[in-house]
């Protein structure tokens, strides 16, 4: 087989998939900025013990509602000022980042895992099982998500764990539907059939053969889901149904300081800004991911 030997020599080597991905991702400046912000937020959250100037719980009774350092009456000891019981806002924000990211990670992992399982099984097996799962998801989608989350928390009792659980349940249908749709699309492709001819069982078919090809839209949805999880957690915290005081959670910080909006704007503004920026960063990065992973957008 002489001719085949020659064919083997001619190796066209396009760039590695990861390199190519980065090329497309880095074209989107907003996405890169978002990624940077997320990276910094993660670093801050991890090293909160080291970089926070104060404990988030210590109450400095002599410095209640002290403004940020650049204003009259502010000191560099409390860079972003203090709240109504004299706790350092910067330290609370730093520890809050830890909590918010933790909420995001847990919610996304939980809903992604369950969503992928339900979506892939219903897409692969179809039939009555699929109908039951999908109608259940439709019912969940028909209810306003925050209301549903509140109902769940009300039943389970207000705490951070229950809030996380409630949010995970509420966002579940998105993952199920997305997974099922891509599984159905992939299922009819030839490579799946050829694995079946090789005798692959249903478990292998679903999780080893099909799933990796459905991951691109799920990764994007998960990134965007991160931000909505943080937002929902903040909302539940704001309503007093999430993290309980004195836990430094951004939403709860916002809620507890509402009455000082007129007198001490910093108490409200900084947690609000933190939520805004984090959510924005995740959304931007998610958009960038979608563009980079979507083959239709590639030129």
């Amino acid at each position: 087989m002489n001719e085949t030997a020659i064919i083997a020599e001619n190796n066209i080597s396009p760039p590695h998939p990861l390199k190519e991905f980065w090329k497309y991702f880095s074209e989107n400046k907003g996405a890169v900025a978002g990624l940077w912000f997320i990276g910094i937020a993660i670093l801050v959250a991890i090293s909160a013990n080291l970089i926070a100037p104060h404990s988030p719980f210590t109450q400095y009774r002599d410095a209640i509602l002290q403004p940020p350092f650049w204003m009259d009456g502010g000191t560099t000891e409390f860079i972003l000022g203090t709240d109504d019981v004299g706790r350092d806002i910067l330290s609370r924000l730093i520890f809050g980042a830890r909590l918010s990211l933790f909420v995001g990670v847990i919610v996304v992992t939980l809903s992604l895992a369950v969503g992928i399982f339900l979506g892939i099984t219903s897409g692969y097996f179809g039939g009555f099982y699929e109908t039951v799962v999908m109608r259940l998801m439709d019912i969940m989608l028909a209810l306003p998500s925050l209301l549903l989350a509140m109902a769940i928390v009300a039943i389970l009792g207000p705490s951070l764990q229950n809030a996380i659980l409630a949010i995970a349940v509420v966002v579940l249908p998105h993952y199920v539907r997305l997974t099922r749709a891509s599984v159905i699309g992939e299922k009819s492709k030839d490579y799946v059939t050829s694995s079946r001819v090789s005798g692959a069982g249903p478990f292998r078919m679903m999780f080893v053969v099909i799933l990796p090809n459905c991951m691109a839209p799920l990764i994007v949805q998960a990134t965007l889901g991160f931000s909505s999880a943080i937002l929902d957690a903040a909302a539940l915290g704001f309503l007093g149904m999430g993290a309980q005081p004195p836990t430094p959670e951004w939403g709860a910080m916002l809620a507890n300081s509402l009455q000082f909006v007129q007198r001490a704007w910093w108490v409200v503004t900084f947690p609000g800004l933190a939520i805004l920026l984090t959510v924005l960063a995740f959304n931007l990065a998610g958009d960038g991911l979608r563009d980079a992973l979507d083959p239709k957008m590639k030129r």
Binding site: N2, E3, I6, I7, N10, I12, S13, P14
Partner: peptide, 9 residues
Amino acid sequence: PGLVPGKFD
């Protein structure tokens, strides 16, 4: 023998 030349070769 061989292939149609592409972008890289």
